[in-house]
Design a protein around this nucleic acid. Structure first.
Ligand SMILES: [Zn+2]
Ligand SMILES: [Zn+2]
Ligand SMILES: [Zn+2]
Ligand SMILES: [Zn+2]
Lengths: 140, 140
DNA sequence: TACTTATTGCTAGTAAGTCTCAATAATGTC
DNA sequence: GACATTATTGAGACTTACTAGCAATAAGTA
């Protein structure tokens, strides 16, 4: 899990200043284990302007500190990136908790598929939808 | 590839009537090898009301005749579903062409990962970003 | 044809996100 | 600290994607 100061540090690496609004956003974010929408984040931070929240998340995205999830809903979901860049996410469909996983098998799969389809595979996106260990699964 | 009439047939299976606007949408769609946004589709069909285009795509989505792609952009991209429901998509990042692929390896991968992560895997989403055979790749 | 119900196309409304810009805060220099 | 310089902020207008309401219309049906 990303420690408190790392979000700000990631911003500073981009040449950004550490300001009060950004600190507030970082502090709130570091407690978020779930995926979130920027809108919801903004509502939790009435002292920070909406535009600033959107701008900061965009910066964190550039910095690789948060990921945009590939949800098919209209609303754009984000999640903190903990293990590093470009890992894959599993999202609990009941509580929204996001885990990142890193599976060597995935990379092997991609190269296997690359061989099967025409063209060159540049990038991939894999998301698992799960019922996490803390949520009761339906049937039982 | 889905033949012309199948889009309308899919709608009729939902209990929908085959009307002129829907025919126009189906005819245009059947020529689309690429992913598309509903907005762009609507612009190509000035004789059909925008709301109707949105409504029809929503119906085709329910019918499983089109897929919503898991793009990370704001704009929602759709694509005709040809090989059937719930296959995976590869999208050419240069021309937008969408292919569907079906790989047994994918399903095997998912069950392998299931074993590695806590919780129960319910669903998955895999998208490949490629440079297709018809597009020149950058470096060469 | 006449009746019934689904569908259409306006238009207005909502929601997510971006842009503008004057006011403000951070940083560096003296 | 005072000052100049540059980045950042927040409020609100604006854009874009999409949905809802509703009267007019087209399909299906007898
Ligand atoms: Zn991530
Ligand atoms: Zn859960
Ligand atoms: Zn499909
Ligand atoms: Zn291409």
């Amino acid at each position: 899990m990303i420690p408190d100061k790392e979000l700000l540090a990631a911003l500073e690496e981009l040449g950004c200043r550490a300001t009060a609004p950004r600190r507030a956003i970082a502090e709130l974010l570091e407690q978020k284990l779930d995926s979130f929408t920027v809108e919801a984040l903004s509502e939790e931070l009435p002292s920070v302007g909406r535009a600033t929240v959107y701008r900061t998340i965009k910066l964190l995205l550039e910095a690789g500190a948060v990921c945009k999830l590939a949800t098919i809903d209209v609303s754009q979901m984000y999640s903190l990136c903990r293990v590093g860049h470009h890992d894959h996410h599993s999202v609990c469909i009941q509580c929204g908790a996001v885990e990142e996983f890193r599976a060597a098998a995935v990379e092997r799969l991609i190269s296997a598929i690359s061989a099967e389809i025409p063209g060159e595979v540049i990038d991939h996106r894999i998301e698992l939808y799960v019922v996490c260990g803390f949520c009761p699964s339906d049937g039982e």
